[in-house]
Design a protein around this nucleic acid. Structure first.
Length: 506
RNA sequence: GCCCCCAUCGUCUAGGGGACCAGGACGUGGCCCUUUCAAGGCCAAAACCGGGGUUCGAAUCCCCGUGGGGGCACCA
């Protein structure tokens, strides 16, 4: 185990504004891995300071998705912890108190400008192709006057008083030192007129109060990163270890996912939402494995990882700063790999809800027999429905054309089926051991390829031209039912032969 | 427009001055195996954005271009 990091207290801090997507899942995964690897804590904090964007139910979905992925947190809104509450909307007074401290110490000031005026200023700046920054009107107010006006109840916000000169250098774990001139930074609003803090203040206050050591977040935060460091330094708090993770790009690699891309992706059967992937039959193990490898690598030859293995092998030093396009065919590959590594009973357990959902009556014993023969063939759990649904249907309805053997006439197919019926009927039971050899000999006697005969039997017994292995399937279906279905197939083939316009065609 | 980040096969990546006519994985093509479909095995095609430096030597370090991406809210 790499002991390079001290016990890390990390936080995953999503805002409850929508459905959990893969980018969040990866951040949470890395948080979890770092915490578990170093013997630290994984904190879940809900950043719900913007009540306008709050989506009811998203918090529940978020927690369900994290738990589905196997990422349990040590402290959070539902499990509590030493720094509760873990929901920012419940910590309003804490932020306000800290903002006032900043005002008193000259690092922040009251601003009484109306949103309308600010909008006008911004438009003018943009027309003049300038950086749209606050023009500093209230920054020049005498502090005593500003405090008096605020105390008198005048509408106001609190802005951070950005130094006008010089620059700030902050360290990012993946990119090294990042230096920005202070004049390119704004006097950001840190407390809104409703008294609630913005992310910039709230997150920094919480990270400090909660003893967070490492901040892992998306690279989208890089532009405001210097502001956050300014705030931390204004308070005189300990510097954090900043890790800005690479962005996730849409599969084409051209930019991040938009609403439209998200919809288009769904139509092709994939999704960036964890919930959708679960519903589509992906294993949490596969999603974790796939997402872990987008922006992180171990060595050249190992790519298959379980969560415990990732806890052991993960390292911040192997993180890659460049944006990564999502490769869904690789997700499919990982899903197949993880499905194949499952115990049969586990696989059966996971397939069950998909079969049930598709309306198939479920016999657990039967499912346990079916699972091993489809295990190598599944890409998603959902694939079990078209692949093995017939096992759970009392009736099958093979298509007449499918029953005709390859390069054979209906009459000849019927003849072959009758011969196979006689052979199988005489067997004590049907299995690979008992039926394969005799059937191969029969094919030879009939002048057929084994594939031609087996094809007819496959469609007759399973109702479909593509199925799990024939003998294993027939064994599961059972001799009486196989014979009954074969009889039915013979009847269909004979009917087809009777109406055939080419009686001589063989 | 301004600020910031990034830059190796189609995609995810290894590589941190000589071990690289650049390795692995997905995908693609071919072959083998084979009762269908898979799985598995083998093989192949496929990349260091460009230009300058530094150096005996650069995919690797520096600079400049170019390209791509992100951000510029009383959102997070």
């Amino acid at each position: 185990m790499p002991a390079s990091e001290k016990p890390a207290r990390v936080r995953f801090a999503p805002s409850p504004t929508g459905t959990t997507h893969l980018g969040s899942a990866r951040t949470a995964l890395y948080d979890y891995l770092l915490a578990r690897q170093t013997g630290g804590q994984f904190i879940l904090r809900i950043e719900d300071t913007d009540r306008k964007r709050y989506v009811p139910g998203s918090e529940q979905e978020l927690m369900a998705s994290l738990r589905w992925l196997g990422l349990e947190w040590d402290e959070g809104p539902d499990v509590g912890g030493p720094h509760a509450p873990y929901r920012q909307s419940e910590r309003k007074h804490i932020y306000l108190q800290h903002a006032l401290e900043l005002v008193e110490r000259g690092h922040a000031y009251y601003c009484f400008c109306s949103p309308q005026r600010l909008e006008k200023v911004r438009q003018e700046q943009q027309r003049r192709k300038e950086l749209p920054l606050y023009d500093g009107t209230c920054r020049r107010l005498p502090p005593a006057e500003a405090t008096a006006r605020a105390a008198a109840g005048e509408q106001h916000v609190i802005r951070f008083k950005m130094p006008r000169e010089g620059s700030i250098t902050a360290h990012d774990r993946l990119r090294g030192d990042i230096t920005v001139k202070n004049r390119n930074l704004d006097d950001y609003i840190i407390v809104k007129s409703d008294g609630l803090a913005l992310y910039h203040l709230a997150a920094m206050v919480d990270d400090h109060l909660m003893g967070v050591t490492h901040v892992l977040r998306s690279a989208e935060w890089l532009p405001t990163f210097p502001l956050h460091v300014h705030i931390v330094r204004a308070f005189g708090w300990a510097e954090l270890e900043w890790v800005h993770l690479s962005l996730f790009l849409k599969p084409s690699g051209k930019g991040k996912m938009s609403k439209r891309d998200t919809q288009a992706l769904k139509e092709s059967g994939y999704s960036i939402f964890v919930e959708d992937l679960r519903l589509a039959g992906y294993l949490p193990e596969a999603v974790v494995n796939w997402v872990a490898l987008m922006g992180w690598s171990y060595d050249d030859h190992t790519e298959f990882f379980t969560l415990p293995e990732l806890v052991e092998k993960f390292s911040l030093d192997k993180l890659n700063p460049s944006p990564a396009a999502m490769n869904y065919s690789k997700l499919d590959h990982f899903n197949g790999l993880h499905i194949r590594s499952l115990e049969v009973s586990d696989l059966a357990r996971r397939i069950k809800p998909f079969l049930l959902n598709a309306g198939y009556y479920l016999d657990d014993e039967l499912l346990l027999q079916v699972a091993p023969i489809i295990q190598k063939r599944l890409v998603t759990l959902d694939d079990a429905i078209p692949m093995a649904g017939f096992f759970f249907q009392p009736q099958i309805a093979p298509k007449a054309d499918d029953l005709v053997g390859k390069n054979m006439s209906p009459a000849r197919s019927a003849h072959a089926a009758r011969a196979a019926y006689a052979l199988l009927a005489a067997l004590p039971s049907i299995s690979l051991e008992t039926a394969e050899e005799p059937l191969r000999r029969l094919a030879e006697e009939l002048g057929l390829d084994a594939g031609q005969l087996f094809g007819i039997l496959r469609v007759a017994a399973t109702g479909q031209p593509v199925s799990p292995p024939l003998f294993e399937s027939m064994q599961i279906i059972g001799k009486p039912v196989v014979l009954e279905r074969l009889k039915n197939a013979i009847a269909i083939l004979e009917g087809l032969a009777a109406e055939s316009p080419h009686p001589l065609a063989q």
